[in-house]
């Protein structure tokens, strides 16, 4: 499988200000296998997503999208390849000088291949898919946290990507909001999108992914299915699944 239809990270190291965030990290996201990367806050989960997208330059190792190795290349070279991937940032990262409609249609407007009418049709369709059609002409500042995330998902969908990254999509949402996001992710998977989520929310992770990667102190300490994870004897993984007294203040 790990041919042209995957996003890979090979022997990747990344540090900020002398502090190692990732060390010798290998990771592969194959088309059709939905994954979650788990780890405590500050473990470097967001950093992994940004490295995979070529938004940050690694100190060593490389990232490949399909057949194209993007590390060390200027953005203009791999930006076409990267369009196969969309990301839903933690806070939504909606452009706050634009309306919801302009946000969702952003890439289509930029590419300028479609007429305004066609773009509006797509925008409405994506907004109704995530259930916030009524927000079309609102500005991001007028939306609730859950709506922002759903609009961000609609924006990610507008470009029709193969892979969608989710950065802590359920953090800070009420249970209904969490359910909504979970449901959306499952519907996307049913439509053939491959999802990669980073989170520390186990329930959402188990509901939406087949394979799990556990990040601890800059390294991958576990990779496998839910059953393998529950059966794992690695203490950090067990602590994460069922925090006990021993996990206080570690």
């Amino acid at each position: 499988m790990s041919g042209s239809d995957s996003i890979r990270m090979e022997k990747l190291s990344y540090s900020v200000g002398g502090r190692k965030i990732l060390e010798d990290f290998d990771f592969c996201l194959d088309r059709g296998v939905n994954r979650t990367i788990l780890g405590v806050s500050g473990a470097g989960k967001t950093t992994i997503l940004k490295l995979l997208l070529g938004l940050l330059p690694p100190q060593s190792g490389r990232v490949c999208i399909g057949d194209v190795c993007i590390t060390g290349q200027p953005e203009s070279i791999f930006s076409e390849q990267r369009k196969r991937i969309a990301i839903v940032f933690q806070g939504g990262a909606l452009f706050d000088s634009m309306t919801v409609g302009e946000n969702v249609g952003y890439r289509l407007f930029e590419e300028g291949r479609l007429s305004e009418g066609e773009i509006e049709g797509i925008v409405r369709e994506k907004l109704s898919f995530v259930g916030v059609e009524e927000a079309l002409n609102l500005y991001p500042a007028e939306l609730s946290g859950g709506m922002k995330k759903r609009v961000a998902i609609a924006r990610a969908l507008a470009a029709n990507p193969d892979f969608i990254f989710f950065d802590e999509p359920t953090t800070g949402l009420d249970p209904i909001g969490v359910y909504n996001i979970c449901n959306l992710m499952q519907r996307l998977q049913a439509e053939g999108k491959t999802t990669l989520m980073v989170t520390h929310d186990l329930a959402t992770a188990f509901a939406t992914s087949e394979r799990f990667t556990f990040l601890h102190q800059a390294r991958m300490i576990f990779e496998g299915t839910e059953a393998e994870m529950r059966a794992s004897t690695i203490p950090e993984v067990q602590q994460f699944l069922q925090p006990t007294k021993e996990s206080l203040f570690v």
Partner: peptide
């Protein structure tokens, strides 16, 4: 800091 610049880059904008 709100990752809007990252989002723009991912959308293919220079």
């Amino acid at each position: 800091v709100t990752e809007q610049v990252d989002a723009m880059r991912v959308e293919g904008t220079d």
